[in-house]
C-alpha cells in the first residue's frame, strides 16, 4: 500500500486510497450487508435524490420516445425525436453554441483565475487577500437573473460599456452588444465568465494555500524563476482543484439557461440559442415534450461525455502523486 511506503510527513494525496483501519470506520461484517441504521441516515437524501433527480431522468428518457403536447395522450414516436435532434440543422447549431460557450465559461475563468490566484498568493497580504476573495466571489453570490439584468443594461447602447468606450475615444466600437449577431454570443460568454471567475479564483487559491512553502524554497534554490515555479510546483499541486473548476464550468456552459434567458432569450435570430433554452422553448412554447425530452437526454449524455474523461484524468493523476 502507498500509505505504508510513504515517507513520514508527506501530505496525503487528496484522492489517495486509505485503509478502513486508518479512516477509523467500522467495516461491515461479511454476509450481513450494510447495517439498517446506516440506511436510516442515508434515506432522506436518497429519497430526495430519487424523487427529484432519478425519477425525472427516467421520465424524461421515457417521454423522449413519444410525441406529446403535455396535456393529451402520449403517442409512440420510436426514435424519431432523436433522429430530429441529430438531423435538424438548427438544433445542431444550438449544441454548437454550447461548445463555444465553454471557451468563455471555462477557459477564460480558469486561465484568469490561475493568474489572479497566483498573483494574490505571491504579492498580496493576507488581509488584502481576504478582501479580494470576497469581492471576486461576489458574482457567484448574486442571483444569475439579477446579473443578467445588470449586464443587459451595461451592454445596451446607453449602458456603461458603450459610455466608457466613448469616453476613451473608442466610440466607433460602441454598439448594441447583445443585439448584434456577431457580438451577442461572445457577450453572453463574457457574462458567464464574470460569474464563474470568482468561483475559480477561490477554488484555485484554496488549492495553492495547501502547497508546502518548502517546495517553493527548494525550487528557488534550484534556480527556478516565477514561471518555472508555477509550471513545476503550483500547477501539478492544484491538479484536483483545476479538475473541479473544469468540471463545474463545463457543466455550466453546456447547460446554460438563466443568463441567456434573461439577457437575450436566444436572440437575435438564434445567435445565442443554447440547448437549455431550446429545451424550454420546445417544451413550453412549441409543446413538443417528446422532442424537448430527447434533446435533454442528448444534452445529459453530452455533459457526461465531456465530464467523465476530465474526471478520469484528474483522478488518475491524483493517484500517481
Amino acid at each position: 500500500m502507498n500509505d505504508l511506503t510513504r515517507p513520514s510527513g508527506a501530505p496525503h494525496g487528496a484522492g489517495a486510497p486509505r485503509s478502513h483501519k486508518e479512516r477509523g470506520a467500522p467495516r461491515p461484517r461479511k454476509g450481513r450487508g450494510v447495517p439498517n441504521r446506516y440506511w436510516a441516515f442515508v434515506a432522506p437524501a436518497l429519497l430526495a435524490y430519487a424523487g427529484f433527480v432519478l425519477w425525472p431522468i427516467v421520465q424524461t428518457v421515457r417521454y423522449s420516445f413519444y410525441n406529446w403536447d403535455g396535456i393529451s395522450t402520449l403517442q409512440g414516436a420510436g426514435l424519431s425525436n432523436y433522429r430530429t435532434v441529430f438531423t435538424n440543422g438548427q438544433l445542431l447549431g444550438v449544441i454548437g453554441h454550447a461548445f463555444v460557450l465553454i471557451l468563455y465559461f471555462s477557459v477564460i475563468p480558469i486561465v484568469l483565475g490561475l493568474a489572479v490566484a497566483t498573483a494574490m498568493r505571491r504579492f498580496v497580504s493576507a488581509k488584502m487577500s481576504a478582501v479580494a476573495r470576497v469581492v471576486l466571489f461576489l458574482p457567484q453570490v448574486v442571483p444569475l437573473v439579477a446579473a443578467g439584468i445588470a449586464w443587459n443594461w451595461m451592454l445596451s447602447t446607453t449602458g456603461a460599456v458603450d459610455q466608457i468606450l466613448q469616453k476613451v475615444g473608442l466610440g466607433s466600437l460602441a454598439h448594441s452588444w447583445l443585439g448584434d449577431f456577431s457580438t451577442a454570443l461572445p457577450s453572453v460568454g463574457i457574462i458567464g465568465a464574470w460569474v464563474l471567475l470568482g468561483l475559480c479564483i477561490v477554488l484555485l487559491l484554496a488549492g495553492m494555500t495547501k502547497i508546502e512553502s518548502s517546495l517553493y524554497e527548494a525550487a528557488q534554490l534550484d534556480g527556478a524563476g516565477p514561471l518555472r515555479e508555477f509550471l513545476s510546483v503550483t500547477l501539478p499541486s492544484i491538479r484536483q482543484e483545476i479538475g473541479v473548476c473544469v468540471t463545474v464550468t463545463v457543466i455550466a456552459a453546456l447547460s446554460a439557461f438563466d443568463i441567456v434567458y434573461i439577457s437575450t432569450q436566444g436572440g437575435p435570430g438564434n445567435a445565442t440559442m443554447v440547448p437549455g433554452l431550446e429545451i424550454y422553448q420546445l417544451a413550453f412554447y412549441n409543446r413538443q415534450m417528446g422532442l424537448a425530452s430527447a434533446l435533454a437526454v442528448v444534452l445529459m449524455v453530452l455533459v457526461l461525455v465531456c465530464i467523465l474523461p476530465i474526471q478520469w484524468y484528474v483522478r488518475r493523476g491524483s493517484g500517481d502523486r
Binding site: F181, G267, G269, Q281, Y285, R287
Partner: peptide
C-alpha cells in the same frame, strides 16, 4: 399558431434587421 412568434416570426425579422437573411 402557438409558437409561430417565438419560433418563426421573431427570429426571422431579427435576422432581416441584422442583415442575416
Amino acid at each position: 399558431t402557438g409558437s409561430i412568434d417565438a419560433e418563426g416570426l421573431t427570429p426571422a425579422v431579427q435576422k432581416l434587421l441584422g442583415g442575416q437573411t
